[in-house]
Amino acid sequence: MNNLQQKAQQLLESGNYGLIVGYEKGTSGKARPVFIRKAEHASKLIFDESCDQNIAVYLYRQEIKHDKKKVIVANHHTLKSIVELAAENQVFDGDFMVLAFAENGDIIELNTFKEIEKHVATLYHGLTEAEAAMMKKIEDMSLEDRWAFWENEFSKCIKCYACRASCPMCYCPTCTVEINQPQWISVPSHTLGNLEWHVMRAMHLAGRCVTCGQCGKACPLELPIQLLTYKVALDSKQFFDSVAGTSICADNALAIYKPEDHENFIR
């Protein structure tokens, strides 16, 4: 048994905790979310580089939302999302404990939002090199080429909404796409309707996207849709110095107004 499994076992045996949300080995060596309720199942837990999925989405899931004896094993994406969800009052202080990992692999227990926020401050906030390169490639395109690029990508979207379902920040019980009076976004998955959906999604995540890339990872068609929300995340930082997932106080760019805010984007 490794550290994590031992820790999980202890927590469950203590009776103070009844549920551990973490990762287990899934099909073909992929990691997947797991819900451990019994100490004897703690050995299922894993935590390695395959565990890159953001699992904060489960914290407010109806079935376990009100379970105050839960623990979540959090990678850095999940941690940032917890901070952002805390800022937006979607999760509550003391409702769960977080098990995070130090660089040397040691387990860190985080019990309060303040502790999580402090820990998150030590993490890298920004795009990976590969992600930054993809962003640059698209930003360097001419307007026509960029349009063609996205038109091609959106033509493939089947509107399964895996992007929405896997994003911790997409927690609205009724999404704009489901509002039909008026019908903002067309239901069929044609290129135009898909574009409407993805642009709308990106705008709703402006200043809230923690750049975990979960939407892109979830997409069965592998559309690089995370680049859209990355773009608004980068703009939020550039224009408003707002980085989502860093502060448990609601201060995201599009939610508050400051007199010194730039207005040069209004044209």
């Binding site: 399964c160 909404y161 896997s166």
Partner: peptide, 10 residues
């Protein structure tokens, strides 16, 4: 429990 309720499978 794990299912996030998207339509990908269908």
């Amino acid at each position: 429990m794990r299912c996030i309720g998207c339509g990908a499978c269908a």
